Lab assay of single mutants.
Amino acid sequence: YETDHQDYCEVCQQGGEIILCDTCPRAYHLVCLDPELDRAPEGKWSCPHCEKE
Rank of each mutant, 00 (worst) to 15 (best):
Y1R: 04
Y1S: 05
Y1N: 05
Y1L: 14
E2A: 05
E2Q: 15
E2M: 15
E2R: 09
E2P: 09
T3K: 15
D4P: 06
D4T: 13
D4A: 14
D4S: 08
H5C: 15
H5E: 08
H5S: 15
Q6Y: 05
Q6P: 04
Q6E: 06
Q6H: 11
Q6G: 05
D7M: 09
D7L: 01
D7E: 05
D7Q: 08
D7P: 14
Y8M: 14
Y8D: 10
C9I: 02
C9N: 04
C9M: 02
C9Q: 02
E10Y: 14
V11L: 14
V11F: 14
V11M: 15
V11E: 15
V11H: 15
C12Y: 00
C12M: 01
C12R: 00
C12G: 01
Q13E: 09
Q13Y: 11
Q14F: 05
Q14M: 11
Q14A: 10
Q14S: 07
Q14V: 08
G15S: 06
G15C: 01
G16H: 10
G16L: 09
G16N: 14
G16E: 13
E17V: 03
E17D: 10
E17T: 12
E17F: 07
E17R: 08
E17Y: 11
E17Q: 08
I18T: 14
I18D: 10
I18F: 10
I18Q: 09
I18S: 05
I19F: 05
I19Y: 13
I19W: 05
I19G: 07
L20D: 12
L20M: 12
L20T: 15
L20Y: 13
C21Q: 01
C21Y: 01
C21N: 00
C21E: 00
C21R: 00
C21M: 00
D22N: 12
D22V: 06
D22M: 12
D22Y: 08
D22L: 07
T23S: 12
T23A: 04
C24K: 00
C24T: 01
C24F: 00
C24P: 00
P25F: 11
P25K: 03
P25E: 13
R26Y: 08
R26Q: 15
R26K: 13
R26D: 07
R26V: 04
R26C: 02
R26T: 12
R26M: 09
A27V: 12
A27S: 02
A27G: 03
A27L: 07
Y28N: 04
Y28M: 15
Y28G: 07
H29N: 03
H29Q: 00
H29L: 01
H29E: 00
L30K: 09
L30W: 13
V31D: 07
V31C: 05
V31N: 04
V31G: 09
V31W: 05
V31P: 03
C32F: 00
C32A: 00
C32D: 01
C32T: 00
C32K: 00
L33I: 06
L33G: 13
L33A: 09
L33V: 07
L33C: 13
D34K: 10
D34V: 09
D34W: 01
D34S: 08
D34Y: 04
P35D: 12
P35Y: 12
P35W: 07
E36A: 11
E36Y: 03
L37V: 08
D38E: 06
D38C: 05
D38T: 07
R39E: 10
R39W: 06
R39P: 09
R39M: 11
A40V: 10
A40P: 08
A40C: 04
P41T: 10
P41Y: 08
P41K: 05
P41R: 09
P41I: 10
P41V: 12
P41C: 04
P41M: 06
E42Y: 06
G43A: 04
G43E: 15
G43T: 08
G43I: 04
G43V: 13
G43W: 04
K44G: 13
K44F: 08
W45N: 12
W45Q: 14
W45I: 06
W45T: 08
S46A: 10
S46L: 11
S46D: 08
S46Q: 14
C47W: 00
C47V: 01
P48N: 11
P48Q: 10
P48E: 10
P48A: 12
H49Y: 04
H49C: 03
H49G: 11
C50V: 02
C50H: 05
C50E: 02
K52G: 08
K52C: 05
K52V: 04
E53D: 04
E53M: 07
E53C: 02
